[in-house]
Design a protein around this nucleic acid. Structure first.
Lengths: 216, 216
DNA sequence: TAAAAAATTTAGACAAACCTAAATATTTTA
DNA sequence: TAAAATATTTAGGTTTGTCTAAATTTTTTA
């Protein structure tokens, strides 16, 4: 199997690949809290194992084998997050660090049974899709609240920022997964948005609107 | 916190200390599947951290701080084993290796909530006591079946050998935790023992009788 | 109780994953 | 399009935890 460090690199490449064609050394260094030179070392190792496509100075992409491993780690991460929230009653802002450790428990049999135990959930506590045991998943078509107009609305289905600070703020405002919202006004001065919810009105900054995702 | 290797050394010292005053370098090397010289290196490091009492050539014991860490790891191991068997329906011979990884998940809040989720179990699937969140636990007073006489009996409450092969054998014979047994005969030739159970009779070797524990 | 055997420690190396500093390649900009 | 700025890689080191081989200490045994 792969080392913990290798798994974390593959996972990072996967996440960064969602927003770009290929991933740069510096992007990875920033995400992994390490130095570019350390990243280069590891990229050589992963290329040697044929888990990534790497040409010096040109960035990297995952091979099919590398992607499969990355998705499996993400599956584990999200299933453990679901477990922590649904079975152990943790809040959605508390589970990331724990799942970061638990995603490296190696047994696939274990994770498949955990999946079954919880009733094969499709989304984790932050609205991110949980890959099934074959690595398949569908992302629903989401947009940031900031991308919709006055009088439009939808259901909160995800977040872009997963930081505890942001999640705690949303919780406090009642802006949690599944809630219906409608934009009633956009303040011209700073483009902050006024949202109508079932039983109250909240005003959120553009920054928050950018990081809150809804389905139409 | 401590590294994975440090945690495994502390746990090993704890387990080996149960059968002896102090623990030798070679005993540890055997249990940890490593070399005596590697053990010596680690012992110096653990002594430096004041987790063990170590005088060269004289073996080691845990300090109070070291024992606390060891017991916490054992608590995690046994709670995860309980979870795997009771919630995910694994068999008692399948869970050791998985728990060996899971015992290193760092969060104590997580393990305390898991404990609560399962109703604060007192014994793991092999009959070993689960330390509570303060590290306290009672071992019930067990003896090997081999230590009792004809017409004596008791309830199966533990095993000495935790190997899958032994556990699978016991399972097949119906000799599982909680079963009532009574010794009806001891064969003079090889001192194997005939056991009367609720609805059947089984004959076990001296070796098996030595590794099967009962309460009187 | 001295020699032999066994156990333990020390010395010197190695791989993994990281680091800093220097060199090189690419991209930006004037 | 050449110089400057930025990004990336290379070179050389460090730490952790392991190893083998040699040295030393303890224990056993004759």
């Amino acid at each position: 199997m792969n080392t913990l460090a290798e798994e974390n690199y593959l996972k990072s490449i996967y996440h960064l690949s969602l927003n770009a064609e290929s991933v740069s050394t510096n992007q990875m260094a920033a995400l992994l809290n390490t130095k570019a030179s350390s990243v280069t070392d590891m990229l050589k190792k992963l290329a040697e194992k044929e888990l990534i496509n790497y040409t010096p100075y040109q960035g990297v992409t995952l091979t099919a084998a590398g992607e499969k491993i990355a998705i499996n780690i993400i599956r584990k991460h999200r299933l453990w997050e679901f477990f922590l929230v649904e079975k152990l009653n943790f809040k959605w802002d508390e589970v990331h660090e724990m799942a970061e450790e638990m995603e490296h428990i190696s047994s696939n049999e274990l994770i498949d049974r955990l999946d079954k135990f919880m009733g094969f959930p499709k989304y984790d506590p932050h609205g991110d899709p949980i890959p099934d045991c074959d690595g398949k998943f569908k992302t629903h078509d989401l947009k940031p609240v900031s991308a919709i107009d006055v009088n439009a609305g939808g259901v909160i289905c995800g977040v872009r920022d997963h930081s505890p600070a942001f999640l705690q703020y949303l919780e406090k405002q009642g802006l949690t997964i599944g809630k219906q919202i409608c934009v009633t006004d956009i303040i011209e001065f700073d483009r902050s948005m006024v949202l109508q919810m079932e039983n109250k009105t909240v005003q959120i900054s553009r920054e928050v609107a950018n990081n809150l995702l809804i389905t139409l």
